[in-house]
Simulated scan of single mutants.
Amino acid sequence: MIALDTLDTAGVEGLDGLAGRRVAVAMSGGVDSSVVAALAHAAGAEVVGVTLQLYGGGATPSRPGACCAGADIRDARAVADRMGFAHYVIDMEARFQDSVIQHFADSYAAGRTPVPCVECNKTVKFHDLLDLARSLGAEALLTGHYVRRIEGADGPELHRGRDPAKDQSYFLWATTQAQLDYLRFPLGGLEKRRVRSLADTLGLVVANKPDSQDICFVGGGDYAAIVERLHPELAAGGEIVDAAGRVLGRHAGIHKFTVGQRRGLELGGATEPLYVTAIDAEAARVIVGPRTALAVGAAVLEDCNRLGAWAGQVEAKVRSLAALAPAHVEDTTLVFDTPQQGVAPGQAAVLYAGSRVLGGGVIARTRAPLTN
C-alpha cells in the first residue's frame, strides 16, 4: 500500500482524520473518483467504493464521454482490486430512468432546457447514494467533484473549485446543508493535470482515460432521439413565428430548440439574424426575434436551495458556461444589474458571493428589462 506521506498531496483536501474510519467513495470509473478512492485508502481509511450502474444494463461497452456503465464499472473495480479495498456495484438504472432521463424528456416536452447533471446529483447521487453510504456505516461520502468544502463560521460552505476550467459548482447548487455536512471533495483544490499525475504515480489503469463529457446517457450527442422515444408526439413539429404571431416557417420539434439558439431555424427569407426567444409548448410553436429580443432583466426561480444568505449583491451564473452576472435577489426573483441574453427556462441560476456557492434555483420564467 502506498503511504499518503510519500505522495505530493499539496492542495488535496478533506482527508485529515480519516485513518481507521470507514468512508464511502462514489466511483464512476473515471480518473477523478479513482484518485479520490486511492488517496483515501493511502490515508489509512477503510474505503468502500460504490459504483452506480445507471444505464446500459451494465454490459454496454464504454465510449468516450460516458460513465457508470459497461467498461467504466470494470475500470472502477480494477482500481479497487489494485488498491485492495471493497467495491460494490449498485443497480440504479430504474431510478435513473425515472428521476433523470424521464425528467430530461419531460422538460423538453414542456419547452424547457433541463440540466440533467443537476437532477442526477440531486436525486441519485446525493440522495440515494448518500443514504446507501450511511447504511454501510460510512462516516463520510467522498466524490471526485471539482468543488471545495470549506469550514465557515456557521458550518461547512460550498465553494468553487480552484481550477476554473474544471469547476463543477454550477451542477451542485442543490446540495443541501445536511448533505454538505457528510460530503468531502478532496480534489477541489487541484488542477486536473495534478490529478492525472497522481493517478500515474498511484499506478491506476485510468490515469490517461478521457474525461466524461456532455450528457453521459446520450449516445453520439443525439439527445432528441431520447426525448422523442419518451414523447413521440413532439416529432410532429409545428410553426416558427415572430413576436406578432406571423408564421415564418416550420420546425421538426420544440425539443430541438432552446432560448438563444440561432442554428437550425432555416428561415431563408429573414432580413436579419433571428434567434429563439421563447417556446410555446402548448401550441408547439417556436418564437423567434432579433438578438435584442433576447434581453432579460430578471428571472423568477423555483425549487430554490439556500446555502447562504441571499441578501445584497450576488453574482449569478445562468448557464454552465456563462460568465458571472452581477445581480440581487428579491424573494425568489433574480434581478440582473444589466440585461442578460440566452436565459432559458429550465436551466439553473446559481448564486455566488466570491467563490462561495449561496445556492440557486431553476429558472421558471423570465422578465424583460424595465424601460426608462
Rank of each mutant, 00 (worst) to 15 (best):
E233H: 13
A235R: 15
A235I: 14
A236Y: 05
G238K: 12
E239N: 10
I240G: 03
I240Y: 04
V241D: 06
D242S: 06
D242N: 15
A243H: 07
A243R: 14
A243G: 15
A243I: 08
A244V: 04
R246T: 15
V247H: 07
V247T: 14
L248F: 10
G249K: 10
H251L: 03
H251V: 05
H251A: 01
G253F: 14
K256F: 00
F257K: 01
F257W: 06
V259Y: 11
V259A: 04
G260R: 13
G260W: 14
G260F: 11
G260P: 03
Q261S: 04
Q261L: 09
R262L: 00
R263Q: 13
G264D: 10
L265D: 09
E266G: 00
L267Y: 12
G268M: 07
G269P: 00
G269V: 03
A270D: 12
T271V: 13
T271R: 15
T271L: 13
P273Y: 06
P273F: 04
Y275A: 02
Y275V: 04
V276I: 07
V276K: 06
V276R: 07
A278W: 04
D280C: 07
D280W: 10
A281M: 06
R285Q: 15
V288S: 03
G289A: 04
A293K: 10
A293Q: 11
A295C: 00
A295V: 01
G297W: 07
G297N: 05
A298K: 06
A299Y: 12
A299K: 06
D303C: 08
D303R: 15
C304V: 15
C304M: 09
G308Y: 13
G308L: 03
A311S: 14
G312T: 07
G312L: 09
Q313R: 15
V314Y: 11
E315S: 11
A316Q: 05
V318W: 05
S320W: 13
L321P: 00
L321Y: 11
A322I: 04
A323G: 03
L324E: 03
P326E: 01
H328W: 11
H328S: 10
V329N: 03
V329K: 02
E330T: 10
E330W: 06
D331A: 15
T332K: 10
T333K: 08
L334E: 07
V335A: 02
D337I: 01
T338P: 01
T338Y: 06
Q340V: 09
Q341F: 10
A344M: 09
A348K: 09
A349C: 14
L351T: 13
L351Y: 13
A353H: 10
G354K: 09
G354H: 08
S355P: 03
R356I: 08
L358C: 06
L358N: 05
G361W: 12
G361R: 12
V362R: 14
V362P: 00
V362S: 04
V362M: 13
I363P: 06
R365S: 14
